[in-house]
Design a protein around this nucleic acid. Structure first.
Length: 471
RNA sequence: GGCGACGUACCCAAGUGGCUUAAGGGGAAGGUCUGCAAAACCUUUAUUCAUCGGUUCGAAUCCGAUCGUCGCCUCCA
């Protein structure tokens, strides 16, 4: 049984998809006007964990992530750089795909773009106007929130409080300052499309309503996004979709906590952010993913070097076990698998953790307990059992690899026959000879110099291995 | 001002009424291994959950107050 915290009901509830065995999931994607930062990455990676766990459980997941490719910020940037808006959008759409690939994020089933759904958007705006939920003012179309009685149900806000604390500029063309644009009249030099209200472009919120409806249906299972989207974005989506379709919109709402820096939200407007591409120069995608996995998706997480370094060290425990399995596998025998590892119990604990609102930190704990047991079992066996190694491998594969995406059994096997590696092996052999001759200054020199090059020698019981350092 | 979240060891972080006199990771300490190291592996590391009251047979977990931190109410993952 999978329990999830639903922002809409503000409580944990059992997750039951609309259609048995199938899940339709929508996550708000990027506005493609810049490289995305690791705060954005946290949402994308958490979505990835959730999606992959649902697939682990056997669900067929249709996962849609929108790309907002027409918007004020894109236009602003295009004007500054004196290029067409589409050029900006294309450039950063390409960058987005490059970055999520580096982060080992499984591609969505579909990435609908706003500019490719203008007809659907216009149709939905028209429906809202026809049904009386929206009004035309000049070439703009606004949503009249007073017509949607349950406005505020997701964010827990009420309209009166909002008006009182409103920092929205008074726009005289709107009936109510909180009414939001569904369609914006074109200004000179802006990209625009022909509509029943004159040429213009869609407002921000409407694309998600129109595209989710088109690709996932009127009512679908999961809608997720960052905490800051609850209001107004998601609130407005509900108002649009439920008014237009007269049917419930998303059934379960998940919201991701922020990645903070110095306990402040990391955001482009505050300027305190790192782009993913810069960040990947210093830390591996596995480290970033594991850093995120160790905190619950909904909780705020403070970014820190210490935290990243800690995650990297923890990650090495998993990688060490993987390396150990790889090393032992060729010499393993068919002796029966008689270990103290209770595999079934570990699967159960892992699933129990993930079933409790995708509790990845707890699941990581299970993973570490498993690693400890696996190491102990391997320590106690003078000869490795093929079956045991395979079982250990299967568990790591199913959890750490397939869901967290934090390691791999295939790493570096292809490049291991390079000249560089042969030279390292040669130096190791030289050092062993030096050690045999008790020429320790020479052996230490080789060790130290290789270390300076980022190659760590590891003297084992009967052989010396090496490891290239990386974050 | 309105709404909401949170405060657990040196640091990060699960746990939200009895299974927990609080998982896991980092750090630290000890051990095995080693020529010595490093790495690896093993062991140890909170009678206590911001503070103060209350409810209960029983609370870190529920309720109230206080202090502190953060977010949303404008674009933001």
């Amino acid at each position: 049984m999978l329990n999830v915290y639903n922002t809409l009901t503000r409580q944990k509830e059992e997750f039951i998809p609309l259609e048995k065995g199938k899940i339709k999931m929508y996550v708000c994607g990027p506005t493609v006007y810049d490289y995305f930062h690791i705060g954005n990455a946290r949402s994308f990676i958490n979505s990835d964990f959730i999606r992959k766990y649902l697939e682990y459980k056997g669900y067929e997941v249709t996962f849609a992530m929108n790309l907002t490719d027409i918007d004020d910020k894109i236009i602003k940037k295009a004007n500054t750089e004196n290029v067409p808006a589409s050029e900006i959008a294309n450039k950063f759409t390409k960058a987005f795909f490059e970055d999520i690939t580096l982060l080992r994020i499984k591609p969505a089933t579909i990435y609908p773009k706003a500019t490719e759904h203008i007809d659907d958007i216009i149709a939905m705006v028209k429906t809202l106007v026809d049904k009386g939920y929206a009004y035309v003012s000049g070439g703009d179309v606004f949503y009249d929130i007073s017509k949607f009685t349950s406005y505020g149900k997701l964010s827990g806000k009420n309209i009166d409080d909002l008006i009182e604390g409103s920092r929205v500029e008074i726009n005289t063309t709107k009936t109510n300052p909180l009414d939001f644009a569904l369609w914006k009249a074109a200004k000179p030099g802006e990209p625009s499309w022909v509509s029943p209200w004159g040429s213009g472009r869609p407002g921000w919120h409407i694309e998600c309503s129109a595209m989710s409806c088109k690709h996932l249906g009127v009512t679908f299972d999961i809608h997720a996004g960052g905490n800051d989207l609850i209001f107004p974005h998601h609130e407005n989506e509900i108002a649009q979709s439920e008014a237009a379709n007269q049917k419930p919109f998303a059934r379960y709402w998940f919201h991701f906590g922020f990645l903070n820096i110095n306990n402040e939200k990391m955001s482009k407007s505050l300027g305190n952010f790192f782009t993913v591409r810069d960040f990947l120069k210093k830390y591996s995608p596995e480290t970033i993913r594991f850093f995120f996995a160790q905190t619950h998706y909904g909780a705020p997480l403070n970014f820190s070097e210490e935290g990243l370094d800690g995650a990297h060290k923890g990650l090495q425990k998993i990688e060490n076990l993987v390396a150990r399995i790889n090393e032992l596998t060729p010499d393993a025998t068919d002796i029966s698998s008689d270990t103290s590892i209770d595999f079934a119990a570990f699967y159960e604990l892992f699933e129990k953790a993930m079933d409790e609102d995708f509790n990845t930190p707890k699941a990581c704990g299970v993973l570490f307990d498993f690693i400890k047991d696996a190491n102990k079992a391997l320590n106690s066996q003078s000869q490795s059992s093929k079956a045991t190694l395979l079982e250990i491998r299967k568990f790591i594969e199913a959890t750490a690899v397939n869901i967290f995406g934090i390691t791999s059994f295939e790493k570096e096997t292809e490049s291991s026959v390079s000249l560089e590696n042969e030279l390292i092996e040669l130096l190791i052999a030289t050092r062993i000879e030096a050690k045999k001759a008790k020429q320790y200054p020479l052996s230490d020199f080789i060790r130290d110099e290789l270390k300076k090059l980022g190659i760590m020698l590891q003297d084992g019981k009967d052989k010396t291995t090496y490891k290239k350092s990386s974050q």
